[in-house]
Design a protein around this nucleic acid. Structure first.
Lengths: 149, 149
DNA sequence: GCACAGTCATTTGTGTACAAACGAGTTACG
DNA sequence: CGTAACTCGTTTGTACACAAATGACTGTGC
């Protein structure tokens, strides 16, 4: 029943490899679509988070995106420099700050509404398939979380 | 039937986000397991490819891993400096070269046999689930390939 | 033979991703 | 109170990932 170690290496190659390739590939599809908006994929995720629920504290945003603060910090800085988001002090805690889209950031949302249909059209995959994939990935993420505990 | 654009943004957030988070998360699981071997995840994928089928020309390796030559180049350089792989000239074409594991690279394979079981144990997911995920991801990759054409 | 388009790997520049160390602010304990 | 432990965001250093430009080699057409 146990696969031979040799085969395990091969399967391992297929799974972890497929995950990395699929991730890079899909992000690549987003790249050409997001490029006219002046956003990278992580920057797009930040805007999605803030469009959905602003203001958010820096830490809350990092937790939502499951991104290391050290990674998020320069991304936030670039979005501020682009004039899409702005930081406001948080009353009672000088260490942190809250982030919200600027007026320009909200305007960008109108153009961003065209992104998901463009991606789906480009991928040519039915929406149900994507939702199934999302659920499958949610299990992987849950497994990773358990592993980290 | 068509979801409202607002919902599309939300779903989009869930899917592209889940893919990125799952990819980073799984690679994170590998990180702690590969660290004692002195390998990063991309470096591990290079070694898997060469253990499975050496020698490989640089271009063949890049295609196999679906990695940009500009990305692969420094990875190969680091593995050479680590003494795990070596390059040999290709007769009849001065532009490229072939890569193979060194004796030390083959020795490392013995230790690497323990990696897949460790990952599976850490994730706590049944092997069948991982194979299903692999197949699901293969479809996504195929869709990305069609999109790129 | 020989220009010339094509292929090959590398380099450069920008943008993540993460570990580790840091400095400023906050909380809790004695 | 006051300091020790903790939390916060940032910085530094290393390693991908990709676009664009580069320089070296190859093959073709004339």
């Amino acid at each position: 029943m146990d696969p031979l170690p040799e085969d395990a290496l091969e399967l391992d190659r297929q799974v972890c490899f497929a995950l990395a390739v699929a991730s890079r590939g899909v992000i690549g599809v987003y790249r050409s679509i997001l490029e006219p908006l002046g956003l990278t994929h992580p920057q797009y995720l930040v805007m999605l988070a803030l469009w959905g629920d602003a203001p958010l504290r820096f830490r809350e945003l990092a937790d939502t995106l499951r991104l290391d603060p050290a990674t998020l910090s320069p991304i936030v800085k670039r979005l501020e420099q682009s004039g899409l988001i702005e930081r406001a002090p948080v009353e009672g805690d000088e260490r942190t700050f809250a982030l919200s889209p600027t007026a320009q950031g909200w305007e960008l949302r109108e153009r961003a509404l065209a992104v998901p249909p463009a991606v789906i059209e480009r991928l040519g995959m039915p929406v149900e398939r994507l939702m199934a994939l999302r659920d499958e990935l949610a299990e992987v993420i849950a497994a990773v979380d358990r592993a980290g505990a």
